[in-house]
Amino acid sequence: MRAIHHIALICSDYDRSRAFYRDILGLPVIREVWRAERQSWKCDLHAGNAQIELFSFPAPPSRPSRPEACGLRHLAFTVADIDAEVTRLDAAGVSCEPIRIDEHTGQRFTFFTDPDGLPLELYEQVKS
């Protein structure tokens, strides 16, 4: 294993989620395709050294995320300045939890959610 290539997410409202990941989080679109045989959109977004694949499907079932459910717990994004990112998200109407300190690394982090309630994390990595 060399790296994570992509993370695939199925959303309940494709346009709303694409706007969230593209416009609010600022992830550039690599490509977007309509898959007629599956009645599904697929949007590949650039996320650092990996990609997020955003899918739409007709009537996808809900997946519990809280309380802690088996499966993907959250998706974390590395940021250089967590205060600036929290301020930017807040201005876009995205609420973040209070910033906490990772007791093992001393780095700061916070959580927020995407339009479907998927827990997302900002993890500040300060260059030393």
Score class of each variant (00 low, 15 high):
1 M>K: 09
4 I>H: 13
4 I>C: 10
5 H>C: 01
8 A>W: 02
10 I>K: 12
11 C>N: 05
11 C>M: 12
12 S>V: 07
14 Y>E: 05
14 Y>A: 02
20 F>A: 09
20 F>K: 04
20 F>W: 07
22 R>T: 11
26 G>E: 03
27 L>N: 06
27 L>S: 00
29 V>K: 11
30 I>C: 07
30 I>Y: 13
31 R>T: 15
31 R>F: 15
32 E>W: 03
32 E>P: 14
33 V>N: 14
33 V>F: 13
33 V>S: 15
35 R>G: 03
37 E>M: 09
38 R>H: 02
38 R>K: 15
38 R>Q: 15
40 S>H: 12
40 S>Q: 14
41 W>L: 13
43 C>M: 07
44 D>K: 10
44 D>I: 08
46 H>N: 06
46 H>W: 14
50 A>W: 09
51 Q>F: 08
53 E>C: 02
53 E>G: 12
54 L>V: 00
54 L>D: 13
54 L>C: 07
56 S>F: 10
57 F>R: 02
58 P>S: 06
58 P>M: 10
58 P>H: 13
59 A>H: 11
59 A>T: 07
59 A>W: 08
59 A>V: 08
60 P>R: 09
61 P>Y: 14
62 S>R: 14
63 R>F: 09
64 P>C: 07
65 S>N: 08
65 S>E: 04
69 A>E: 10
70 C>L: 15
71 G>A: 10
73 R>D: 04
73 R>G: 04
74 H>T: 01
75 L>D: 11
76 A>P: 00
78 T>E: 06
78 T>P: 13
78 T>I: 12
78 T>R: 15
79 V>G: 00
80 A>I: 05
80 A>Q: 09
80 A>C: 03
80 A>F: 10
81 D>A: 14
82 I>D: 09
82 I>V: 12
83 D>F: 03
85 E>I: 03
85 E>S: 13
86 V>I: 02
87 T>G: 10
88 R>Q: 05
88 R>K: 05
89 L>E: 04
90 D>Q: 15
94 V>S: 04
94 V>K: 04
94 V>Y: 01
98 P>F: 06
98 P>K: 08
99 I>G: 14
100 R>M: 14
101 I>R: 00
101 I>A: 04
103 E>C: 12
103 E>V: 12
104 H>C: 15
107 Q>E: 05
108 R>D: 12
111 F>C: 08
112 F>T: 12
114 D>F: 10
117 G>R: 12
117 G>E: 14
119 P>S: 11
119 P>H: 06
120 L>R: 09
121 E>L: 01
122 L>T: 07
123 Y>G: 10
124 E>R: 08
124 E>F: 12
125 Q>E: 14
126 V>K: 07
126 V>S: 00
127 K>A: 02
